[in-house]
Simulated scan of single mutants.
Amino acid sequence: MTGIEEAEAQLSEIELLTSMFPSQNEFNIRDQLALAELREYVEGRTDYLPSSRPEFVIHQKMDTEDLKGVTVAISCTYVVDYPNVLPDISVRCPELSRAQQARLHADMNAHLKENCCGEVCMLSAVEWIKDNAHLYITKNPAAQGLQRVSTETPPVEVFTRLWIYSHHIYNKVKRKNILEWSSDLGLSGFCMPGKPGIVCVEGPQASCEEFWARVKVLTWKRIMIRHREDIPLHSQSGGEGNVTSLRRFSGFEEAMFDPHGNRGNHMDLGQLYQYLNERGCGEVFQLYFGIEGR
Rank of each mutant, 00 (worst) to 15 (best):
C200P: 04
E202D: 04
G203L: 03
G203N: 01
P204C: 06
Q205K: 10
C208E: 02
C208W: 00
C208T: 05
C208H: 03
E209Q: 13
E209H: 10
E210F: 03
E210D: 13
E210L: 11
F211N: 00
F211W: 08
F211Y: 09
R214V: 10
V215M: 11
K216L: 12
K216G: 09
V217K: 07
V217I: 15
L218N: 14
L218R: 13
L218K: 09
T219E: 15
W220G: 03
K221P: 01
R222T: 08
I223G: 04
I225V: 15
I225K: 10
R226S: 10
R226Q: 14
R226K: 13
R226W: 03
R226A: 09
R228I: 11
E229T: 10
E229V: 06
D230N: 14
I231A: 08
P232V: 11
P232D: 09
L233H: 00
L233W: 01
H234T: 13
H234Q: 15
S235V: 14
S235P: 05
S235K: 15
S235H: 13
G238E: 00
G239E: 12
E240T: 07
G241E: 12
N242C: 11
V243N: 02
V243W: 00
V243L: 15
T244D: 15
S245H: 07
L246G: 01
R247P: 06
R247A: 06
R248Q: 12
R248G: 08
R248D: 02
